[in-house]
């Protein structure tokens, strides 16, 4: 009995550091943020959320739609890329698609501004090809933002998806081809269903990273509507209004939580269904 208590205590000591890190770096800030979001002039109130709803509901919607759009485009691109590389060894492409992983967001943002500006690289090219005088720039539009997000996020997602595709035993693919399935058919009927968990992970990571990204929307995004993160920054920088900023933060957190719950439920059925 005594030994057991002692063992328990040692066990507790062992997990304590990890536990403390979790508390200080995750749980505490989260609770603080939620707490602050209900404070206005030192009173507990829904006022901050009222403001979020009043001023920023369009931006919240815009963030969700933009992020969902990014996720969809990124998934399509990374599945295409991963399918191609699963069937065909191509060293060059295999290296090139990872390149954006090593470029900081700030530099990407700057590069895209130059590339997408009204008289930037892209438009110079387009005006010459289309033989027109002027073209609007994409650098301050939703198209530019989507483009840049996709450029930044695709390598991460592709890395995950390709890893899963490559880990899939070839016999599953060969069995399908042997029975008459073309490569495209194999991707849809065998590879994608069998790699669904990894594709889900790629989608969710892309979603979270996109909706919480600040650098890129600040540098590329249109002035209005804005991503939630940009609104938070303005709230703090110009109004020193931590209450509304935190309320916005909690809203974006809730969006992610909905996703997390969905993901966990999916994983549970997946495990029950396939792995037994």
């Amino acid at each position: 009995m005594r030994l057991q208590t002692k063992e328990r205590f040692i066990g507790f000591l062992l997990v304590l550091p990890a536990f403390l890190v979790l508390i200080f770096l995750y749980v505490y800030p989260l609770i603080r943020a939620i707490w602050t979001s209900f404070l206005k002039d030192n009173h507990l109130t829904w006022a901050n959320y009222g403001k979020v709803f009043e001023i920023y509901s369009r931006d919240v919607l815009y963030s969700v739609v933009m992020t969902t759009g990014v996720v969809l485009v990124v998934l399509v691109l990374s599945i295409l890329l991963a399918s191609y590389l699963r069937f065909k060894e191509w060293r060059f492409l295999d290296l090139m698609y990872r390149l954006p992983l090593f470029i900081p967001f700030l530099i990407v943002g700057h590069a895209m501004r130059i590339f997408l500006a009204p008289h930037g690289t892209l438009n110079n090219l387009l005006t010459r090809i289309l033989r027109v005088e002027e073209l609007p720039g994409f650098s301050r539009s939703w198209i530019g933002l989507l483009w840049t997000f996709v450029w930044v996020m695709t390598p991460y997602a592709a890395l995950i998806v390709l890893g899963a595709f490559r880990a899939l035993d070839s016999s599953y693919i060969e069995a399908a081809r042997n029975l008459g399935a073309s490569k495209a058919k194999v991707v849809f009927t065998v590879i994608m269903p069998m790699c669904k968990p990894s594709i889900m992970v790629a989608a969710i990571l892309t979603f979270v990273r996109t909706i919480s990204s600040l650098t890129i929307p600040v540098m590329i995004g249109p002035n209005t509507p804005n991503m939630i993160t940009v609104d938070m920054m303005f709230r703090i920088n110009f109004f020193n209004d931590w209450g509304v900023a935190n309320a916005l933060g909690v809203v974006s957190y809730l969006i992610v939580v909905v996703l997390a719950v969905y993901y966990l439920r999916f994983m549970a059925t997946e495990r029950g269904g396939i792995k037994g």
Binding site: E174, N178, L179
Partner: peptide, 15 residues
Amino acid sequence: EKRNVAMFFQNYALW
């Protein structure tokens, strides 16, 4: 996929 030969895989390879 165009050969109409059926292969039986050692690990069965059932999906």
